[in-house]
Computed example of a mutant assay.
Amino acid sequence: MKRVDVTYVLLFDELGENVLMVKNQGKKGSYYTLPGGAVEPGETLEEAAIREAKEETGLDVEIGDVFSVCEAFVEERGHHAVFFTFRGKITGGEITISMPEEIEEVTWMNVQDAEEYIHITGNTKGLIKRSESAPYLLRKRSDITT
């Protein structure tokens, strides 16, 4: 199976009541997710999350700590996918759809409804609003000893 890393960004509105979601066009129909997508070769997780958020929403974002990490085996594609979701903050831009062939809609969704679409294993009710998170650290290759 091929390993595929995917990043998402959890973004709240100014009041912290709504989550920014994108409606993707898939082969089996439309579905909502957080803004995000696959990490490209040579790209860090942070760079991928920032790029994907911009491509899908038109917004400039700053990445914070890790909200969640989960993985799945996508048998029909032959992928072992690892999903990294970061907390983020909007720093600029305007909501636009630059890839209408992939994204149908960019919308603010209340937290309770958004929880239905954010697939994290276990009981996730109320998880979005909790403040606990883990730091994202990028270690330089020169800092790693073997």
Rank of each mutant, 00 (worst) to 15 (best):
E115H: 10
I63R: 00
E102Q: 13
I95F: 04
F84K: 04
T124G: 12
T107A: 15
T124Q: 12
G122D: 11
D113S: 15
E115D: 09
C70Y: 11
I118Y: 01
G64E: 08
A38N: 14
Y117P: 02
V106K: 01
D65P: 09
E62Y: 11
E105M: 06
G64S: 05
D60T: 14
G42W: 06
G36H: 00
I120Y: 14
E116W: 11
N110I: 05
V69N: 07
V82Y: 02
E94H: 10
G92P: 09
T85Q: 03
G92L: 09
A49F: 04
G64I: 06
G64Q: 07
P41D: 07
T91C: 02
E94G: 05
G88W: 06
I90D: 00
R77F: 14
T121S: 13
T91D: 01
E71L: 08
T124F: 10
G42C: 04
E47A: 10
P41N: 05
I120Q: 09
E47G: 06
N123V: 11
F67D: 08
G78E: 07
R77D: 13
E62F: 09
E46V: 15
P100I: 08
F84I: 15
E52F: 02
R51F: 00
T44V: 04
K54L: 14
N110F: 09
I63Q: 03
S98Y: 05
I118V: 15
P41G: 02
D113N: 13
E55I: 09
H79W: 15
V106I: 11
G93M: 04
H80I: 12
V66P: 01
K89Q: 12
A53N: 04
F67Q: 07
A72V: 14
T57V: 01
E94W: 05
E62H: 09
V106D: 01
E75N: 10
E102Y: 14
I63V: 15
Y117M: 06
R77G: 11
N110G: 04
A72K: 13
F67N: 04
V82E: 08
I103M: 07
N123W: 08
E40N: 14
F84W: 15
G88N: 07
G93H: 08
V111H: 02
V106R: 03
E40C: 05
S98W: 08
L45F: 12
F67E: 12
V61C: 01
V106Y: 01
E105D: 11
G88H: 08
E105V: 09
M99S: 15
A48G: 00
Q112E: 15
N110A: 03
F67K: 07
E47H: 03
T85N: 00
G122T: 10
D60L: 13
V66Y: 00
E47F: 02
I97M: 06
T91A: 01
L59H: 07
Q112I: 14
G122E: 12
I63S: 00
D113H: 13
A49Q: 03
E101T: 11
R77L: 15
E105A: 08
F83E: 03
E105W: 02
I50L: 03
T124R: 15
E116M: 14
S68C: 07
M99Y: 13
Q112F: 13
I50P: 01
G36P: 02
A48R: 00
E56Y: 00
G58P: 04
C70V: 09
T44C: 02
E76G: 07
W108F: 10
I103G: 06
H119E: 13
